[in-house]
Simulated assay, not measured.
Amino acid sequence: MQGQHIPTDAQKDEAALWHVKRAGGSMSVAQEGEFDAWINADPGNRLAYDQMRVLWAQVEEPARRMSTAMAGEKPRFDKVRQWFSPGRAFAGVAGAVAVGACVFFFNPDMVENIRADIVTENETVTDVTLTDGSIVHLAANSAIATDFADGRRDVELLRGQAFFEVTHRNGDRFRVHAGPAMIEVVGTRFNVDYLSRNTEIAVEEGAVRVSSNDNPQGVLLGAGDRVAVSTAASLGDVEKTDPTAIHGWMQGRLSVRNVTVGDLVARLDNFASGRLVALGDVSERTISGSFPTTDVVGSLETVAAAVGAKVIRTSPWLTVIY
């Protein structure tokens, strides 16, 4: 009986990866042989793969029907994620399966969008003039909330990227909150990247103080400086950066230095019409370079060539690099 062969976490992870490969039609004859050997090696393997096929069938069709109406929304489905073992090398597979399921169940950006005053769409750069005359340039699929009541000048970057041109006003502080990071300025031009594991702040002109709950004193950044704040609210070291690359995304390029493929894919995903997912140890490999956001598929192919990975498109709504 199948019930006597409950799949292990490892078998579930392997089943998900095999399903992604087979759905993308990228398997060679040799890989088909490896798959046959794997699925016949243990009843738990076959059961895990059968469960994966059923799960995929249940979630892909609703996702296809709703994807057009919800273009630009980034899905999440925690219930499906729980099917996979936490912290495993193939945990990203859960995200790949969740792409379809979570669109059907709920929109992960919904709460942020309700809180936001401004939400941008995919493949756009939106210029917003705030009530104090400051200007915010927002990247695709970004969201901000503002509070200018009673003399305050507070902006919260709920997600995405933003480049600020802050107007000096009688010494009044202008504050930007992004996850665990808080940036305080008087008048300056700086970029905030709140897309991946760290919140990154880079200054083009002027000076800002970056702090967090873990480090309320913070650090002072000048022109050409950058710092990262981790999800655990830990401040990194201040580094020098190329001022011309600080807001390269506004010219349609993402410039990165020694970031993980997973982080880069998460950033490119913001400019894609479907979901991009990095699987396995590929997501932890590091890469540097400049990648066009106007040709996300081409950028993903370039990344794959650079790190020795492969790209498959499992459906119009999901592209996987592994």
Rank of each mutant, 00 (worst) to 15 (best):
N198C: 06
L220P: 03
T146G: 08
G274T: 09
T260E: 11
T146S: 12
G262I: 03
G280C: 08
F163W: 13
D263F: 03
R169K: 09
F163M: 10
V259M: 11
A162W: 13
V176P: 00
G262R: 00
P243H: 05
L276Y: 08
L158Y: 06
A178H: 10
V166F: 06
R267V: 11
H177F: 15
S273K: 14
I183D: 09
Q251F: 12
A245I: 09
R197E: 13
L276A: 04
V208A: 04
R169G: 00
L221K: 03
V203P: 02
G151T: 06
A232C: 04
F148M: 02
G206A: 02
R159M: 11
D147L: 14
A162S: 11
G160S: 10
E204Y: 12
R152A: 14
A228E: 05
G218M: 07
L264C: 09
A228R: 14
T146F: 09
F190I: 01
E204T: 12
V227L: 14
T260H: 06
R226Y: 00
N270S: 15
H168F: 11
V203F: 06
V210T: 01
S255D: 13
E165L: 11
Y194T: 03
F163Q: 07
E184F: 07
V166Y: 05
V229N: 01
Y194P: 00
F174P: 00
R153L: 02
D154V: 09
L157F: 04
M250W: 02
Q251A: 12
G252Y: 08
I201Q: 12
V229T: 01
S211T: 13
G262M: 02
A149E: 15
L276T: 06
P180F: 02
R159A: 07
D269Q: 10
F190T: 01
G274R: 03
V155A: 09
F190C: 05
S273I: 10
A245V: 10
A145D: 13
I183F: 12
F148C: 00
L158E: 03
V229E: 01
R209Q: 09
V166N: 04
I201D: 12
A278E: 08
V203A: 04
V166M: 06
L268R: 01
E200A: 14
M250Q: 12
N191P: 07
A278S: 09
G222A: 06
V208H: 06
L276Q: 04
H177Y: 15
K240T: 15
N170Q: 15
S212E: 09
A245T: 15
V277C: 02
V259T: 03
A272M: 00
E184Y: 08
E156P: 01
V227Y: 15
